[in-house]
Design a protein around this nucleic acid. Structure first.
Length: 476
RNA sequence: GGCGCAUUCGUCUAGGGGUUUAGGACACCGCCCUCUCAAGGCGGAGAUCACGGGUUCGAAUCCCGUAUGCGCUACCA
């Protein structure tokens, strides 16, 4: 039975890398009809970020990474860890350490200065009974350290990278229980993974170095360790570990920026995993069907926003009109100028959304792509009207247009086109130039959806008003 | 500094000894379509597969070194 877990710590908002790890775990579980467990590793009271756990849960829900068990909170399972610590203490596989943070700090400084590998000097490892009693009496609250073997090797088989071997002499006596009574990651992690019968630990590469500690702890507890696979990391553009200085990294920011969860899902799975030599767009079902550890790459991946944008556009265009409108609505409400009265008219919006849908790469672009459909007064620089023609020609063209269109029988894209094409010729203007003039007059910009379709949606009244206002602008 | 992992176009990747003149995608450039933009179609440029040694009839693919990058080296996860 495959049982995997995603075990984030609520010390910050989940970034792309965290979520990609969650995604791989989820996909692995679903592919194997296994169980996906969510566990919040909130053992660092000092760095805990208010609300982070909720953001983590929301982000997972947003991407549809549903969990079968949990969320468990380690802060509510302290007895479990204390029990393990007691066992290790009793077996003399761990010991209390009374060293002050100051002593540890100066020890490290000294080691650095001498270019020695930093690590706990095992000062408290061999305290005499009397010394221990003395320390206890002094009122110092100790930490508990694991008694690492001084020689030999610790090894395990990483599912992705093969046999990994560490010299025990390079390991120090790491802390397993802090003085505030909370366990460290290392201890809590192995206790819970054992307790929850985790079969595979799929976690980021950054944990590889501490894996031998975990193996040692499993051995000390007399437990069978799970299988390990250390996943490649996701790096920033500068190839370093993802962090705040890389701009938007928290997954919820992408939601706010108008990325579709299904696009994000697809994009993220391809950061470190590939189906074959050409498939880029995969449905969630296809991913579940084909996902396998063997096809996970071993090298860290740089996050490429351009490709995400492209992929999001693909998904956006694949949406049905109604679906697209529904998804775009919150963004229109949020970003359209405040003067535009709400609630927005869905019927009207649905008329031009097909035009916008083809052009948007994110939902957040929808408002700026379509604001001229809403706004009463267009604001633009009159010079835009004068692309390749002079003022007189422009005014003449606009006046002729108004005259021609004022009494037009039916106001549709096709009928408008049959009016304006000949008019361009009459005016001696290339269609590109003439239509460009009209486009600016009607939309206030040089790049917009097809002119006549736009005019049809805008309606006669509004179009004529805008043509007139363009003349005003020129003559002002 | 020590330990560990990694190294194929700018980026994401395919490749698991001969089928490779190293394939695809994003981005980039050009052409087509076209009222602009976008989308789409076609084409192009872009990787001496980090480097150096082996093994082999034959290596991007296996082995060993070197270099570089990243990670860890906390009473953080």
């Amino acid at each position: 039975m495959v049982r995997v877990r995603f075990a984030p710590s609520p010390t910050g908002y989940p970034h792309l890398g965290n979520i990609r790890t969650a995604l791989f775990n989820w996909a692995f579980a679903r592919h194997n009809n296994g169980v996906f467990i969510l566990r919040i590793e909130d053992t660092d009271v000092a760095r805990l970020v208010e609300g982070a756990a909720d953001v983590i849960l929301d982000s997972l829900r947003w991407l549809g990474l549903d969990w079968d068990e949990g969320p468990y909170f380690q802060s509510q399972r302290l007895e479990l860890y204390h029990k393990a610590v007691d066992q290790l203490l009793k077996q003399e596989l761990a010991y209390r350490c009374y060293c002050s943070p100051q002593r540890l700090e100066s020890m490290r400084q000294e080691q650095m200065k001498r270019k020695q590998p930093p690590g706990y000097d095992r000062h408290c490892r061999n305290l005499t009974r009397e010394q221990k009693a003395e320390m206890e009496a002094s009122g110092i609250i100790p930490v508990v350290r694991f008694m690492s073997p001084l020689e030999g090797q610790t090894f395990f088989n990483d599912l992705l990278r093969g046999q990994i071997i560490f010299e025990n002499s390079t390991l120090d006596d790491f802390v397993i229980l802090k003085s505030d009574g909370y366990p460290t990651y290392h201890l809590a992690n192995i206790v819970d993974d054992h307790e929850m019968a985790i079969s595979h630990v799929l976690r980021a590469d950054e944990w590889l170095s501490s894996a031998p500690r975990h193996v040692l702890l499993y051995q000390a507890m007399g437990w069978q360790p799970p299988l390990f696979a250390h996943l490649p990391m996701i790096l920033g553009t500068d190839r370093s570990k993802l962090g705040k200085r890389h701009g938007a990294t928290a997954i919820n920011e992408y939601q706010e920026q108008g990325y579709l969860p299904e696009a994000m899902f697809n994009f993220l799975v391809l950061l470190g995993w590939a189906l074959d030599d050409k498939t880029e767009i995969l449905t969630r079902d296809e991913i579940v069907k084909h996902f396998s550890l063997e096809r996970i790459s071993k090298t860290a991946a740089v996050f490429n926003k351009d490709k995400l944008d492209w992929m999001n556009g693909v998904y956006l265009r694949g949406l049905g009109l109604e679906e697209f409108v529904q998804r775009a609505m919150p963004f229109l409400g949020r970003d359209l100028p405040v003067e535009i009265s709400r609630p927005l008219d869905t019927g009207y919006i649905s008329q031009f959304m097909p035009l916008v849908q083809e052009r948007a790469r994110t939902l957040a672009e929808v408002p700026q792509l379509s604001d001229f459909f809403f706004v009463e007064e267009l604001e633009y620089d009159a010079d835009l009207l004068l692309g390749k023609i002079d003022k007189a020609e422009a005014v003449k063209g606009l006046q002729a247009s108004i005259a021609r269109v004022d009494g037009l029988q039916d106001w549709t894209a096709t009928s408008l086109e049959t009016v304006f094409r000949p008019l361009a010729e009459e005016l001696g203007l290339k269609t590109g130039v003439f239509f460009g003039l009209l486009r600016v007059a009607v939309t206030g910009r040089t790049a917009a959806p097809p002119l006549f379709q736009t005019m049809e949606v805008l309606g006669r009244e509004r179009c004529i008003k805008r043509l007139k206002s363009a003349i005003d602008k020129l003559e002002r």
